[in-house]
Design a protein around this nucleic acid. Structure first.
Length: 201
DNA sequence: GGGCATATTTTGACTGCCCA
DNA sequence: TGGGCAGTCAAAATATGCCC
């Protein structure tokens, strides 16, 4: 909790806050380091042995509550209940339009279909979807192994529809994009089959 | 460059508490 | 009662800058 609220600290500083000796604090920190919750770095400050500074790792930070998902679900509910379904749909449409513009700009240099799919997978991975694509005999499979907006998507299915629309727009008219796996429906992943339309092959 | 001073870490022995 | 765990204490080890 001290490392979370105060940032990087030495064993002596932690010991002082906890009312124990620095050796006692250090023993605890070593255990946290063995568990991957804390990392250390050395900092030289003139005369004497360099300080060993302790800070939380990503795993350590993950041990604290994150209520983003709950907040998002709450906001979606508030928009729906106070402004109506139409207002919520307008918000989703605006987000979809914004997403399309952003994706198209990033994929401007991609010429072939495979380059566009590869680029799209890269963008989605950066956004936390752990995306990848698989080349198949009749097209491609875009796979998203994680859904960072799962809680929101369960509350508002429009987000998933918007996502599919975005993929179709970004990949172009010559391909058909179908969702074949859906996390919301209980699948392990979301997957999209991408095939060339008959009249474009 | 080497010895010294300083600040900090490391280590081992020990104590006390809890629990099966 | 013994084992495990958490913490204290003291001494040794370590890393670095300063000064001659």
């Amino acid at each position: 909790m001290l490392l979370k609220t105060r940032g990087t600290l030495t064993a002596a500083e932690i010991a002082k806050e906890l009312g124990i000796t620095s050796e006692g604090a250090r023993l605890q920190l070593i255990k946290f380091m063995e568990d991957g919750l804390v990392s250390s770095a050395h900092e030289s400050n003139g005369v004497g042995r360099p300080k060993q500074l302790f800070s939380l790792t990503e795993l350590g930070h993950a041990g604290f509550p994150d209520t983003h998902a709950e907040l998002t679900v709450k906001l979606i509910g508030l928009v729906k209940n106070t402004l109506g379904e139409d207002a919520l749909q307008k918000v989703i449409d605006a987000a979809e339009q914004s997403g399309k513009v952003k994706y198209l700009a990033e994929l401007e240099a991609a010429v072939t279909l495979e380059e566009r799919i590869s680029g799209l997978a890269g963008i989605r991975t950066r956004e936390g979807y752990m995306a990848e694509y698989i080349k198949e005999s009749d097209g491609y499979l875009l796979v998203e192994n994680h859904c960072p907006i799962c809680a929101a998507a369960k509350t508002c299915q429009g987000l998933c529809v918007s996502e599919l629309n975005t993929f179709r727009s970004v990949l172009g008219n010559e391909v058909q994009v179908d969702r074949v796996d859906h996390i919301i429906a209980g699948a392990r992943r979301c997957a999209y089959r991408i095939t060339r339309k008959e009249n474009f092959s």
